[in-house]
Design a protein around this nucleic acid. Structure first.
Length: 604
RNA sequence: CGGGGCGUGGCUCAGCCCGGUUAGAGCGCUGCGUUCGGGACGCAGAGGUCGGCGGUUCAAUUCCGCCCGCCCCGACCA
């Protein structure tokens, strides 16, 4: 491709809204570089056009994914982007999902959804096609678009509303089969990301709205990431904070003492309270209030959630939402708290005024640590008063007892007790064991060898391709621009022509070299423009092809053409006759460097 | 959801507080000439319903209201 014909130009400055900060105000380099280098352009909020350079890189990623999937026995399919609502109603996601699921109607008034995922459609296909165990196992995969109406698209390609997606789905007759395919994917994914030049970490996650069993996320570690991970260096425990467990320090055994009401003026926080009473936070119970939207059948009900946790721990909203089966959770307002008879800052489930709370839709959820922590200080539901020595279940009831505590950095590892470390990262892929959930919801059964009708066991395996592109850019750039791994670079070679003045020799040489390199199967971006050397070199650095070849009078006078790797400073003059072979071997070496890093990764 | 900020040629921004001929700059773009190894220079150009609607006014890019779009922060622990 000649730069003079390439669609999309480089920009000296990034658009103002591209220097978007994210999290702690860090600039999202991938966003500004991909914009400046002419890879992407924003269309609307959270939607992007992928220009030829980006599309070429995505093509390479897709080719690599196809290779890896074919190795696993995968078969490529294509699926519609607009789905009938019935499928989503059957699995319950129609009612479970909030505004991120876009619902629409066709001209006949039939409900439709824009795909936020494709498990329903896969399960529907499986129901129609799979009648016998002889048709299992199968592995399907596709490249598709996914629309999730995110509230806060951020960080350019890191969090978008429209997502170019790769996903695979395994269909099995039993859980052993699922386990085999799942492990195969866990290994394949590590290699897939490595081949893209991205080091990722697999961590345990929940399956969110999608599944029912175990899942692993593949995380690229970066402070820009929205995922918080807890890692154990001692035993290798790795989990997303949403689901991370930890060992709760047990409270000392004590005999239960009688409740005692004490005046605690202006003690509205746990810190104030512990300080005022001269007790550790672990001797207190704190109450946190939410309004939860919970699906019941097809209907949604809003319930008041009275959550109680020991004062030395923090509540994990994701865990709470999970145990409640809540679709949405928001902090309750002070008015809502008073309406149930509690006093903000001095609330507890003990002696809650206005009993018969279940009728009022109040759900009390307590952290499991409270069952073994005696004589805690809790609110008296009266301004400026707390109660000493409250005990569960002596003094109050709970509708649910569960682990709703957030693991923090420094908490004890659930496996070995060592101190957990916290890291941030971006989720670039997820693999999940869905089990029978989808087949059961949609009635997808097959006749097994034993003559029994059984549900098809599914797994799903997905990668966000735009996000992957952004993460690769985050991992591979310098102050001058992008620095693509050879496996996914839009072009392998950036050929720069410096015409100079006078003779047409340089141009004729470059034209021929362009043709010869292409004939040798090398992908070349040829900068044939009438631009100054500075502009051309800066654009080459910005775009980031791994090998740069410069044809100029100066280099020809020195006996050849100039070769430079994007990541190196050194330049060498290579005789024209050896230019092709030099380039080919340089590319080969770069590719080899990446493939040699591939190992058969044992799934833990 | 709440609070704050922004919206002016393709891009980055000035002008607005204090209303008044033809709305500016740099980059980019077009033409001509010079230059030619790290974002060169000269000359001549093109390109703007100043986000939209409404109001105040003799007069609105400027003041006011509403809307739309974008950005940031807060979301909460009692």
């Amino acid at each position: 491709m000649k730069v003079s014909r390439l669609f999309g130009q480089t920009l000296r400055d990034a658009p103002a809204d591209a220097s978007t900060s994210l999290g702690a105000g860090a600039e999202v380099v991938s966003h500004s570089l991909l914009l400046r280098a002419g890879f992407i352009r924003p269309l609307g909020t959270g939607t992007f056009a992928y220009l030829p350079l980006a599309r070429r890189t995505l093509n390479k990623i897709e080719a690599l994914l196809r290779e890896e999937m074919e190795k696993l026995g995968g078969q490529e399919i294509a699926l519609p982007f607009v789905h009938p609502a019935e499928l989503w109603q059957a699995t319950g996601r129609w009612s479970q999902m909030g505004a991120e699921l876009t619902r629409l109607q066709d001209r006949h008034g039939r409900d439709l959804v824009l795909a936020t995922a494709y498990q329903e459609v896969i399960a529907d296909l499986a129901r129609r096609e799979v009648q016998s165990y002889k048709q299992l196992p199968r592995l399907l995969y596709h490249f598709a678009t996914l629309w999730r109406d995110e509230e806060h698209p951020r960080g350019g390609l890191l969090r978008t509303r429209e997502v170019p997606l790769f996903a695979a789905y395994s269909l099995d007759a039993d859980r052993d089969g699922l386990e085999r395919q799942y492990r195969a994917h866990a290994q394949a994914y590590v290699n897939i990301f490595r081949r893209c030049g991205l080091e990722v970490m697999a961590v345990q996650s929940d399956t969110g709205a999608a599944g029912e069993n175990m899942a692993d996320e593949f995380i690229y570690l970066t402070p820009l990431g929205e995922e918080m991970l807890l890692l154990c260096d001692a035993c290798g425990y790795r989990a997303n904070r949403r689901v991370a467990r930890f060992q709760k320090t047990p409270a000392a055994a004590e005999t239960l003492k009688p409740i005692e009401k004490v005046k605690t003026p202006a003690c509205k926080t746990i810190a104030d309270l512990a300080n005022f009473l001269g007790l550790p936070k672990s001797k207190t119970a704190k109450a946190v209030f939410f309004m939860a939207t919970i699906p019941e059948g097809q209907a949604l009900t809003e319930k008041f959630i009275f959550a109680v946790i020991r004062g030395d721990m923090e509540l994990n909203e994701a865990k709470l939402a999970s145990v409640l089966g809540a679709r949405d959770l928001r902090p309750a307002t002070e008015d809502e708290i008073r309406a149930i008879g509690a006093e903000p800052g001095f609330a507890s489930p003990v002696r809650l005024r206005g009993e018969g709370r279940s009728k009022k839709g109040i759900v009390v959820v307590i952290d499991d640590s409270l069952t073994s922590s005696p004589n805690l200080v809790a609110g008296a539901n009266e301004a400026d008063y707390h109660l000493l020595n409250t005990n569960y279940p002596r003094d109050y009831r709970a509708d649910l007892v569960a682990d709703i505590a957030a693991a923090e950095a420094g908490a004890a590892c659930p496996q070995c007790g060592a101190s957990l470390r916290a890291e941030r990262g971006v989720e670039v892929g997820e693999i999940a064991q869905l089990g029978a959930r989808y087949a059961e919801a949609l009635g997808g059964t097959f006749l097994d060898r034993d003559g029994q009708q059984k549900p098809v066991i599914m797994g799903s395996y997905g990668i966000g391709l735009g996000r992957l592109l952004a993460c690769i850019a985050e991992a591979h750039h310098d102050e001058h621009g992008l620095l693509w791994p050879a496996t996914v670079a839009p072009f392998q070679v950036h050929l720069v022509l410096l015409r100079g003045k006078g003779t047409p020799q340089a141009e004729e040489t470059a034209d021929k070299l362009y043709a010869d390199l292409q004939a040798a199967g090398i992908e070349v971006l040829y900068d044939d423009r009438e631009e100054s050397p500075g502009v051309k070199f800066n654009d080459a650095d910005l775009i980031g092809c791994p090998v740069r070849v410069t044809v100029s009078e100066r280099a020809l006078a020195q006996g050849g053409v100039e070769m430079k790797l994007r990541r190196e400073q050194e330049k060498v003059i290579v005789p024209l006759a050896e230019a092709i072979s030099w380039t080919a071997s340089a590319i080969h070496a770069l590719l080899e460097e990446i493939s040699s890093g591939l190992t058969s990764v044992e799934y833990r």
